[in-house]
Design a protein around this nucleic acid. Structure first.
Length: 672
DNA sequence: TCAATCCGTATC
DNA sequence: ATACGGATTGAC
């Protein structure tokens, strides 16, 4: 009935435009790149008050009703044709603040994406009931810390950084925090410094467990002035807190806004600090278009808002190193003497010739040094942490005898186990390795590179009879373990805290990490090891980390010296010489061969752009149409032009109703 | 000469 | 996706 023209005409004839600012500029939620711009609509008089900038609205667009955000209200439109009316204002809640809009536009531009895609990440779905329920601060009140920020004086430039935050300046830093450091407390103090100066803060952590720790730390430094956001809250609570943050921002009330990556867009009044913890964690990479990375978004946000920036971790990424090398940020680090005093002893074991002199160690497939380190710590009544790779994490398959990575006999690509029980197959060409023979030693037996956490737990339990064994991993993460003798088997990122620190830690199956065909294999291995080592007591208290890896490898060296800065410098230098991000800006174009080809031919790439490929992607052999990937590389300064060119080219394709999609990803994490 | 139909293009 | 405008076609 509503679609009968006579009825519609009569309805719109009844409507009159609002007296003041009758035109609303609306960002419509359509996925087409060539429609990535605001469209003007008339505001009906009855919605004159509700249709404020930032509200969700429904509009008729190309004949159908779509969602959108009112971006602004203006007096008149440049549009030559007739304007349609806003169909309805979904909610009078102004969920999109001007600062978030500006940030979302900048992120869309940087990542060759559309504003609509970014807004879908930035503003959580509406939950009507949550709007009417009373909003409250989410962090419980606590008592303020005795001497807030005193621990920052362990770091050169630390106190000056906090002072600058308090004084309303915009200090930018890359911080390497000490082993054993109570990092949630340090981040909470930085947020409190911004609040003390009358400004807000946004801090992003990788996962919900880190968020819990940060939230309780902020309950101490800034009681009642914190909002924590994460998808784990569920849609209603998440939206309720988001609305509370938005209302506080509009009331010019600065808060500490903390959360997992989606919180990077959440509204905060008078931003003084944008920070990220552990920026190397791949949870910071958004898996939905346009695939923004939390570190880049937060740094952009700091820049746009004139706020301070903090990239903090126990380890350091090449990207963070580049911020230092470019002079964009300053380093915050402790001096070497302090680092040495806090760090555990680290022993590398290069090959497993010494595997198995002790029968108990042999049973657990443990090198004897590792076994003895664990035994000593347990004897002292301390827990022992064992880090094992995630289950289902099968990067590659190796020769069972010499451990040479197994290579495909037809194309030399890496072999992997496709499924739990299937045969090894090539990750490049899909060839099934029925005829494997090791290129180095000629042996024909393969070995899966990773043993799961449960089996490790069983084996270790047998090696240390009578010792409790606890596991922490994907199905069941332990926040903490008691400070008593126990074996704690954990996957990366799920390591429980132990009050007083672990007595020892074992890093097993490291060669699986290090031989990954991944640009970041070394950086990632070091990041995971340091995360473990930072939970272990100082060497002076007997703390001991045994890493089963060749001591000559760079990440192992960096662990021995406890020097992530050294490793990051090396890593950045290597990426520069190879022409990889972050030294250059890279775009990957993925899709069916014709889609990638068309995108490349339509795009007006900036001068000096270097096109690699397209080449076929190592396919899943499930009969789907094969995909191709091309890489486009430009110097960093041409990054915006590259993104603009690819966005425009995607727009041309979508305007032509291109059938097959082509995915554009800027600085993708997985390049190899 | 006009209406029905097709195709391309804009979408307010 | 849908709607509209201009071009095209076919019948009088």
């Amino acid at each position: 009935m509503a679609n009968r023209p006579a009825v519609r005409r009569r309805r719109s004839a009844e409507r009159t435009p609002a007296d003041e600012f009758p035109v609303a500029r609306v960002a419509v939620d359509v996925p087409l790149p060539h429609l990535d711009r605001p469209f003007d609509y008339l505001v009906p008089a009855e919605h004159a008050d509700a249709a404020q900038p930032g509200v969700r609205a429904r509009v008729r667009f190309a004949g159908q009703l779509v969602d959108g955000f009112v971006l602004e209200r203006v007096g008149s439109s440049d549009h030559a044709g007739r304007l349609a009316y806003l169909e309805r204002v979904t909610s009078s809640e102004r969920v999109l603040t001007p600062e978030t809009l500006r940030l979302a536009r900048a992120v869309a531009d940087r990542y060759a994406g559309t504003l609509a895609d970014v807004l879908r990440l930035a503003v959580p779905p509406r939950h009507a009931k949550a709007e009417s329920e009373p909003a409250q601060a989410t962090s419980p009140g606590g008592r303020a810390a005795d001497v807030p920020g005193a621990a920052w004086s362990d770091y050169v430039a630390g106190p000056a950084y906090l002072a600058a935050l308090r004084e309303g300046r915009a200090p930018r830093a890359v911080a390497a925090l000490l082993p054993g450091e109570d990092w949630p407390a340090r981040l909470a103090e930085a947020a409190a410094a911004a609040l003390a100066g009358g400004r807000g803060a946004v801090l992003v952590v990788p996962d919900a467990r880190d968020l819990d720790r940060l939230e309780s730390a902020i309950a101490t430094t800034a009681p009642g002035r914190c909002v924590a956001l994460s998808a784990a809250l569920g849609p209603a609570e998440r939206y309720r807190r988001f609305v509370r943050a938005g209302r506080a921002a509009r009331a010019e009330e600065p808060l500490a806004l903390i959360g997992t990556r989606a919180a990077m867009f959440a509204p905060v009044a008078r931003l003084g600090l944008a920070g990220i913890w552990d920026d190397g964690d791949d949870l910071h990479a958004e898996p939905r278009a346009p695939y923004p990375h939390a570190r880049e978004v937060l740094l952009t946000r700091a820049q746009l808002a004139g706020a301070g920036a903090l990239v903090a971790g126990h380890s350091r990424t090449a990207e963070a190193q580049l911020l230092l090398a470019a002079g964009w940020a300053r380093e915050i680090a402790a001096d070497r003497r302090t680092v040495r005093a806090r760090a555990p002893r680290v022993t590398p074991i290069g090959d497993d010739a010494q595997l198995a002199r002790d029968p108990a160690a042999a049973q657990a497939r443990l090198p004897s040094v590792a076994w003895r380190a664990a035994r000593d710590a347990l004897a002292a009544g301390a827990p022992v942490l064992v880090q094992v790779p995630r289950r289902g994490y099968l990067p590659s398959v190796h020769c069972a005898d010499c451990r040479q990575p197994a290579r495909c006999s037809s194309c030399s690509g890496p072999l992997a186990l496709a499924g739990a029980s299937s045969a090894a197959a090539c990750r490049w060409c899909g060839h099934v390795a029925v005829d494997f023979a090791c290129a180095r030693c000629g042996q024909r037996r393969l070995r899966a590179s990773v043993v799961g956490a449960r089996r490790t737990a069983e084996e270790l339990g047998r090696a240390f009879p009578g010792t409790p064994v606890r596991t922490s991993g994907r199905d069941g993460v332990l926040a903490a373990v008691p400070p008593e003798a126990a074996l704690v088997i954990a996957t990366p990122g799920a390591e429980p805290l132990a009050a007083g620190g672990y007595g020892a830690a074992l890093l097993l199956d490291t060669w699986a990490l290090l031989t990954r065909t991944d640009l970041r294999a070394g950086e990632e291995a070091l990041r995971r090891w340091l995360a473990v080592a930072c939970l272990v007591r100082p060497a002076s208290d007997g703390g001991h980390v045994v890493v089963v890896a060749d001591g000559g490898l760079a990440p192992v060296q960096a662990l021995l010296r406890f020097d992530p800065a050294w490793h990051a410098e090396r890593e950045l230098a290597e990426r520069s010489s190879l022409g990889f991000p972050p030294a250059v800006r890279m775009a990957s174009l993925t899709g069916a061969p014709d889609a990638v080809g068309e995108l490349l031919s339509v795009a007006e790439l900036p001068d000096g752009a270097d096109v690699l490929g397209p080449v076929p992607l190592p396919g899943r052999d499930d009969g789907e149409e094969s995909l191709e990937r091309a890489l486009v590389r430009v110097r960093r300064g041409a990054g915006p032009a590259l993104a603009a060119a690819l966005h425009a080219a995607s727009g041309v394709r979508s305007a032509r109703k291109a059938r097959t999609p082509a995915r554009v990803q800027i600085d993708p994490l997985d390049l190899l």
